[in-house]
């Protein structure tokens, strides 16, 4: 229970943002990216507390407004756990400062988009006039040495990955949202990811550009590489076409939207969902429990749109993961085994040092993906275990 004196003095609240979305209000503390959905009456309570009213005054107001007595002690405990209330001696957080906003406004301005449109149109026109510029798997092999191809494509992809993620981050900063960049995984894919939880705190119509900024960047990069290839010859042209192909491949990877790619966030934003993935997984668990006559788990909270979309998204999850499992069993594992066997065969057959090095590099690149994905999965598991043991 809240101490009596706590109820009769104003709380020291950190800077909070409020976004009214009709049936729910999204409230959060932007400097630590802690956001929640509240019913409108809960948001009104929090707003009054953050404006300096004492909890006792707010509870009285609530009773007069809604004719019910609110469990203020429970509410205060929850908002304290969320980090909304400044602890004794803790400095009150102001609205966070966001850098690079000027650059972001320029890069996502109408004139900039006109330039991007011209570049893409130019690349399409150049490809129509010279079909050898079109994406083809042959474009990967711009050099006779597989060693050169492997290392160039592997190392050279990182600037393009950073450009994609940088576009997400900058378009967020244009709206005053901070973000952070890190390595993560989706199933066995290694990904660079931009965490931007604050996106839920801006109106829905403004969320589309930060979500689409990565894909737009991939298209512009592909266009620039294609136009450069059109204007050059030899190895430069070859490398440009190879990177244009791999950039398009990364764009296609976004179609695995059950892995919560950018396309997933686009779909949930269009549909107005707030927790689709978790609600869908929960729906599958409950269906399975019912089928096996086990105890049905409690329903995961979500918005009306989540429950509606979960009816089809839950099946997409099943189909998506099943397809991935089939591809792992029929393609990924056999290919990995094949490459490892190939390395040993070449060593056994007394192949040249170049041939053996060639195979070893390819094998290391392929195996490294699974080793890194496994290490990231282990890190997630350890982090989750630690969080459960120390829920503070």
């Amino acid at each position: 229970m809240a101490a009596a004196d706590t109820l009769h003095r104003p709380l020291r609240m950190h800077h909070l943002t409020f976004l009214d979305e009709g049936e729910e209000v999204t409230v959060g503390r932007p400097d630590i990216d802690s956001y929640i959905h509240l019913p409108p009456d809960g948001a009104a309570l929090l707003r009054r507390l953050s404006q300096g009213s004492t909890p006792a005054e707010v509870a009285e107001w609530y009773h007069a407004e809604y004719g019910e007595t609110v469990d203020m002690a429970d509410f205060l405990e929850a908002i304290t756990d969320l980090g909304f209330v400044a602890a004794e001696g803790e400095e009150v957080a102001a609205a966070p400062r966001v850098k690079w906003q000027g650059l972001a406004r320029v890069l996502f301005s109408k004139p900039a988009f006109a330039v991007y449109g011209l570049l893409i149109a130019g690349a399409v026109a150049a490809t129509v006039m010279d079909p050898t510029l079109a994406p083809s798997y042959r474009n990967s092999f711009f050099h006779p040495s597989l060693l050169v191809v492997s290392l160039t494509l592997f190392i050279g992809q990182f600037p393009f990955l950073i450009l994609h993620e940088g576009a997400h981050a900058l378009s967020g900063r244009r709206l005053g949202l901070n973000s952070s960049l890190r390595f993560s995984r989706r199933l066995y894919f290694i990904v660079l990811e931009t965490a931007m939880d604050g996106l839920v705190s801006v109106p829905r119509a403004k969320r589309f550009l930060p979500i689409l900024a990565g894909a737009i960047t991939d298209l512009v990069v592909t266009a620039v590489l294609t136009l450069t290839a059109a204007a050059t010859t030899g190895i430069v042209r070859g490398i440009c076409l190879a990177f244009a192909l791999t950039t398009l491949m990364r764009l296609l990877w976004q179609c695995y939207f059950f892995l919560r790619t950018d396309l997933y966030y686009l779909v949930v934003t269009v549909l107005g969902c707030t927790n689709l993935h978790a609600v869908s997984r929960n729906l599958l668990h409950r269906r399975l429990a019912k089928l096996l006559r086990l105890k049905t788990p409690p329903t995961t909270p979500g918005a009306e749109a989540d429950y509606k979309a979960a009816r089809w998204y839950s099946w997409l999850l099943v189909v998506g993961y099943a397809a991935m499992l089939v591809s792992v069993i029929t393609v990924v594992i056999p290919s990995t085994v094949y490459v490892v066997v190939e390395v040993f065969d070449r060593i056994d057959a007394g192949a040249s040092a170049g041939m053996i090095a060639d195979s070893i590099v390819v094998a290391v690149l392929i195996l490294s993906q699974f080793v890194i994905a496994g290490a990231l999965a282990l890190r997630e598991r350890l982090r989750n275990t630690t969080t459960l043991e120390n829920p503070s």
């Binding site: 019913p39 809960g42 931009t194 939880d197």
Partner: peptide
């Protein structure tokens, strides 16, 4: 006594896949 329901928002993680060959 009325309890206020509080629900954490979904995390937003915008990604790009790194790929070996």
């Amino acid at each position: 006594m009325k309890k206020i329901s509080i629900r954490k928002t979904e995390t937003v993680r915008l990604t790009s896949a790194a790929q070996p060959l």
